[in-house]
Amino acid sequence: MELAGAIITLIGSIFLFLGALGLLRMPDIFNRMQAGTKATTLGSILFLTGSAMAHAECTCTGKIVILILFIIFTNPLSSHALARAAHFIGIPLAKKTVKDDLAEDEKKEEGGQL
């Protein structure tokens, strides 16, 4: 049980590291956001679960479950607000981008209203 918890913690920390690496290496802000929020959310959830399993003697499992729920609730909200702001202030996409659905939709909506 404790060994399994430690290994899950290690996997979670590797996800955290890969998320940070993606944050560093990705070409434009939307890709960076995707690496920096999705991977780190999964990584931190695994990290917390593993910590609770590896230290079963402490009476903190309930608090860690609540903490995981908080992360699941709040993290998508902040990244959604950021992505929306980045779209509205017109940060350019990377050169490799092939499709921008949101911009096409907005154009179509304007055409429909006119």
């Binding site: 960076r32 780190t40 917390l48 902040s78 940060i91």
Partner: peptide, 19 residues
């Protein structure tokens, strides 16, 4: 905006570090 994304990621990682 890039810096805010980095700050967000740092916050999430630091939660793990606190645990």
């Amino acid at each position: 905006a890039d810096r805010v994304v980095a700050l967000d990621a740092m916050t999430i990682i630091s939660i793990s570090l606190i645990i």
